[in-house]
Write a protein that binds this DNA or RNA. Structure first.
Lengths: 201, 201
DNA sequence: TACTTTTGTTAACACCGTTAACAAAAGTAA
DNA sequence: TTACTTTTGTTAACGGTGTTAACAAAAGTA
């Protein structure tokens, strides 16, 4: 009897249509404003049917998170396969990672839990400049005293901050509480590499 | 007449008590679950009074964001002043930055818009492992072929990912749309530094 | 005392995620 | 075809959210 098969297929299609409607909302208004009600409205069904296919709203978002990680994995693998020297692979993968993030911004934000408050207004925060200026001035001095004083200090500042923020936020996503000393070795490793890159370019 | 002065002072105190109540909620339940109603309940006033002092909920959170950046700035400055050599300053500031982030997790998450979905469940995502394994295997090979094959590849993987994620997320916070080629130079700079640090330690 | 301004309240609007209770449709067995 | 069971869908509600309009009360001013 093909009835069971058809039912499974229909269920799968229904599930896909929910995800489709949800994704439309995510890419048009960001994942923050995704709502079960709007999904129900889009697929022209009542609200509770969605709960027949997904445990809750988070489960729907989790689906996209998984999708995103898989897409990233595929992208990285494809790029990697185009090179043989590991250093070239790492460099190409880095650019691919970057491109993926901005070509699929919605995925990336979901994957790493990004984007909440006044992200577009962050540049207006005066206190932010206080923090940046401390870092920038230090880097500027470090560069001036180095063997390559012509180095772009603003670029180096961005690198410095990015390394720090990257380390911290990755760590925060993965673990609760303050990480142990072993985790701080990653910081030590990255930052000493950065300092070396300034002192002798 | 000191009446005007007293009124200003009382207004300021009221404002502070709102922030105090709000902050209590943020540190106990995370900024996600901060609500105007709970603030009103805590200060034992009706809801609309809060809107006499803050335009909206976001404005309250923005206040903490500013506070956070100022605290970070002060911390960095204090640490910097304890050293004279720029390289030492940068290193000390990096550790201070790290400590600040985890000692004031709530601030940090607000400042950089961190933490939304199943952050605690991110390790259960199978697709994530697909992405990481591509990167890890490449780094492993790179290290094996380098002059220091005993290097901890897991540490280097974390460094690699952190640099990438840091670059991307900082860029995403600050700007809309895909950043220009000039911004990608930061990526190039950081990643070539990383590769160098692997090839000759 | 009469008037104005500030401050606070109640009550509502328009959303949200989630679920219980129930109706309708679909499938199954006689 | 009929009687029963299971699946699927609905309505309506619960408890929560940010925000605001309309109004009362208190405080300050003349």
């Amino acid at each position: 009897m093909g009835i069971a098969e058809r039912k499974i297929r229909q269920r799968e299609e229904f599930r896909a249509s929910i995800l489709e409607a949800a994704w439309q909302q995510v890419i048009s208004d960001g994942w923050q404003s995704l709502s079960i009600r709007k999904i129900a409205d889009a697929i022209e069904y009542s609200i509770p049917v969605i709960y027949n296919h997904f445990e809750n709203k988070e489960a729907i978002l989790l689906e996209f998170t998984k999708e995103g990680f898989q897409k990233l994995a595929d992208t990285l693998q494809t790029v990697k396969d185009q090179y043989t020297v590991p250093a070239e692979q790492l460099e190409a993968m880095a650019h691919a990672y970057w491109d993926f993030a901005f070509d699929h911004k919605e995925y990336y934000q979901l994957m790493f839990g990004l984007g909440i408050p006044a992200c577009d207004r962050v540049n207006e925060i005066e206190e932010l400049k206080n923090a940046t200026s401390v870092m920038i001035s230090t880097i500027k001095t470090a560069i001036e005293e180095s063997s390559h004083p012509e180095t772009d200090y603003f670029l180096k500042y961005h690198t410095y901050l990015s390394i720090l923020h990257g380390l911290v936020s990755i760590q925060m996503i993965q673990k609760e509480g303050k990480p142990d000393a072993a985790k701080k070795m990653i910081l030590q490793d990255a930052i000493s590499g950065f300092i070396i890159s300034i002192n002798r370019k």
